[in-house]
Write a protein that binds this DNA or RNA. Structure first.
Lengths: 245, 245
DNA sequence: CGCTTTGTTGAAAAGAGTCAAAGATCGTGG
DNA sequence: CCACGATCTTTGACTCTTTTCAACAAAGCG
């Protein structure tokens, strides 16, 4: 198998030809490591499109006063940007939460690729829509109680990480600190701690050593009112028979 | 001037030829009125793309228990959907908040248009990115205090409505009830009432008869920490000299 | 004119934030 | 191998925001 998670993601939108796959693959060969807590891309129109191949990154915004709000979690196989041929700056920043491996794709090369292979352009548009769909779901999930909101995010991560082969049947590595999680959910880190304890004591999650286990997926889904449809992945991690391997 | 606000929106992404404008215009001729509190499009893959030409609509999600969370406000000139040639269902619903005028564009016609005029496709992709950018800003804005959050939304509406010619220098029609606003901000309608009073007594807004006036734009911007860059409109409603007319 | 919807107010309670301090854990260097 | 410092987690007490419930006033509409 080609280890390229971007291609795997894009093919969720529809099949690609071998030529298209190779053209994509060629763009993702040069990678660099990024240490945790380091910015990958700052505001303004970036010169290259950033592809995460390992680790967990995030898009965040800092309000006056220094409060950080994490807007999205970027997982292996995800592109950081709107990846549009046009220069389009989302007015916020991408940073690595854990140590990451990043491929920098020159914006022009990306534009040429889309020009040559319209199907890739459509797949990238589709990925933008998935990103929009996720952001909408996060927004809809706010204000329901921090416990449900956090549970919802855990459910989502389970599906997304499984879709790129980074989660087992019911657990995955999750190297964020509780302070990071606080900025994801939009609550204080003290409250994160209490919510985690509450979820743990309810038996909904097991979380230690930066490894999250969900003993009963269906139960957590019900608690969080999570329906994976908005993620648009075929796998789904729902099929009770389809396990790892 | 052609009264077509969609074209005006799309040209923010870049100029269109007369042919392209006409092809777009032809798709938006057949309109229908939609009464307030009526769904325009439900979940699932819709057969047509919906363009709002008048009124205020919203995309919303209902959680179990019946709580409604409004995810985005859709203004004249906005398309409701991801408007992708591929069938892509955002798992939520679009409804009219005030009486609306809607044009239904067959999905296939839209796909053909994009095929024929790639520039329109790129402009639509660009609109998707603007939508993503707005959703991210709303998400980032949550949890900062309901007063700042609501003020931020008012600032955004001022810019967006001005960009389509539906706002004066510092005021606009805003026909939502306080209950609607509550679902937009994600707080209770009782708290909306108190927050509005607080903003009023601070002199930041004047709001009565469903008409919102912002006496001092710069002051509200500062209070809400609003920077219109994420909206990607040229006008900006910031230029102190550029008034109506 | 009466009915329904919308806006307003008060009081009690829950959720979440802040402040401050004490344990755990981890990597590093001695 | 241990000690140290830094980071991360946990806990308690207190405050503030926001919710809920309930009632009433105001406005719109037939």
């Amino acid at each position: 198998m080609m280890d390229n998670r971007l291609i795997r993601r894009l093919e969720h939108a529809g099949p690609l030809s071998a030529t298209e796959r190779e053209a994509l693959h060629a763009l993702t060969l040069r990678t660099r490591p990024v240490p945790a807590r380091t910015d990958i891309e700052t505001g303004g129109a970036p010169q290259s499109v950033h592809l995460i191949l390992g680790g967990i990154a995030c898009r965040y915004k800092i309000w006056s006063g220094g409060a950080r709000r994490i807007i999205s979690l970027i997982l292996p196989g995800d592109l950081c940007d709107g990846h549009l041929p046009l220069p389009f700056a989302l007015g916020n920043t991408v940073g690595a939460l854990t140590p990451c491996i990043v491929a920098d794709i020159p914006r022009q090369a990306m534009a040429d690729l889309i020009e040559t292979y319209p199907r890739i352009g459509r797949a990238l548009w589709w990925m933008t829509l998935v990103k929009l769909s996720i952001t909408q779901e996060w927004l809809a999930s706010t204000g329901r109680g921090a416990d449900k909101q956090l549970a919802h995010i855990f459910c989502e991560l389970m599906v997304r990480l499984r879709a790129v082969g980074l989660a087992d049947e019911n657990c995955f590595e999750f190297g964020l600190t509780q302070g990071d999680i606080a900025d994801v959910v939009g609550i204080s880190h003290v409250h994160v701690n209490r919510v985690l304890q509450s979820l743990r004591s309810s038996g909904l999650i097991v979380f230690s050593q930066y490894r999250l286990t969900i003993p009963d997926l269906a139960r957590l889904h019900a608690f969080a009112e999570f329906d994976p449809a908005y993620l648009h992945v075929q796998d789904g991690a729902r099929a009770p028979g389809a396990l790892t391997g």
